[in-house]
Computed example of a mutant assay.
Amino acid sequence: MAGTRNSQVFRIAVSGYYGFRNSGDEAVLRSILLALEKAAAEQGVQVQPVVLSADPEWTSRMYGVESAHRMRPGDLLRTLRSCDGLISGGGSLLQDVTSAKTIPYYVGVLKLAQWLGKPTFVYAQGIGPVNRRAMYPLIRSAMRRSRYVSVRDAESAALLARMGVSPDRIEVVPDPVMGLPLPPGTVPAARGGAAAETPPVLGVSLRRWREDGADMARAAEALVALSKRRPVRLRFLPFHTPSDGVTSELVMERLSGRLGEGSSAELAAPGDDPQAMLLEVSRCDALLGMRLHALIYAANQRVPLLGLSYDPKIDQFLNRLGLTPIGSTESLDPEAFADAACALLDAPEAWRDRYGPAIEELKQQASNPAQQIVRDLRHNRSR
């Protein structure tokens, strides 16, 4: 049992890629915190999160919660000892594409909590790619000992099953950000569309993936092709600072002097708050996204979207909506992109009518993990 004396108060550590000012991961954290707060209120208890962060002071200021440094063993151990359980997730934590150290770190946090006798909960994670099969036993062990395991797509569930985790223990749920609300007191601006006097806004979220920059060159050509078809306001949205801002500026340089008449390009600066970025996306008429959470933000706000794939997680999210990518980092046809983008900008309601039901279902399911975790904590405390 943890150090909280009040039977109606639960301290729970939250582990993820937090404190790095990545809008997508910060949106995951904000979504989890809000979902836990709502679930706790509905079940008549309180949850006190303690976030494991790369920048605890910033995280505490941003979210109004207690934080501890994720890379300081002493802080980590004290935090886990003081808590009633650990949430791992969401996001793409258990993958070895970005670094070989990622899986050992996140599995290590899970295993430490389990060694301390704390219940662990895996919250809407995207599992994989896992190219190093030596990681399979580590992941399998941590998952088998977790009280609750949820993943954000069927492909992640299938990968865990291949590792030896029983499919009966895995719940497929939406990414938590599908449930993220706009900032309190704000509403999305009226969207433009084909009949508006001003050009419609196409949100653009790009990240550099190929070392030679060929993917960004293809994206620039596609945007030029669109601008030749119709006036459009290209609003670049940096989801990871400063890298996405630098990438956006490089692409904008490629567009300089080449856009069609009446078209323009600009760089947004929504700041660090993920809900502020969600508001930015809500004010777009359509969105071209490479970043997964740019696409999730758009779906959350029912903004017609086109996905540019650089990782299986992009394809997997689009598949849940019944969509496929418009291209990838290896191939993007400018005219096909212009065709698709014009169709979205000219008839956004048709897109919403077609894909709205799938989006609504995901939004309704987004709080399922939080409800289950709070329920489990209450049941465990009452035994």
Rank of each mutant, 00 (worst) to 15 (best):
M143Y: 02
A222I: 04
E57S: 11
D215Y: 05
L259Q: 00
P167S: 03
L116V: 10
D376C: 14
M62T: 13
W58D: 12
S99L: 01
P104V: 04
S156T: 13
G322T: 05
D25E: 08
V122Q: 04
T79L: 00
T247W: 00
A157N: 02
S15R: 03
Q371S: 14
A190W: 07
V374T: 04
V232S: 04
A366W: 00
W351K: 00
S227C: 08
A157E: 07
Y17G: 14
G289R: 05
E171D: 15
A347K: 11
R383E: 15
A158V: 00
S156D: 12
V173W: 02
G3L: 13
G108P: 12
V173Q: 04
S60E: 14
L34F: 01
R283V: 01
L305H: 09
G192Y: 09
Q8A: 14
E349M: 05
G213D: 10
A100I: 11
G117F: 12
R5D: 15
I87A: 01
L33K: 02
R378Q: 14
Q125P: 01
L77K: 12
H379N: 13
F239Q: 06
P49E: 12
P183K: 06
I170M: 03
G24H: 05
S67K: 01
I296W: 03
E266Y: 07
R302Q: 15
L250K: 15
L34Y: 00
V149L: 00
T102E: 09
M135K: 06
Y106I: 01
A39C: 00
P188Q: 09
A194T: 06
R78M: 12
L278F: 11
M277I: 08
S92G: 14
T324A: 13
K111A: 15
P56C: 09
L180E: 04
Y105K: 07
N6Y: 05
V151S: 11
C83I: 08
A158T: 01
A298H: 04
R11E: 11
L323N: 09
R354H: 10
Q95T: 06
D346V: 06
H379I: 15
Q275N: 08
H240K: 11
L34E: 12
G327P: 00
L345H: 06
G164L: 10
N300G: 14
D212N: 13
Y355I: 12
R81G: 07
W351C: 09
M71C: 10
P369N: 05
P167T: 03
Q43W: 02
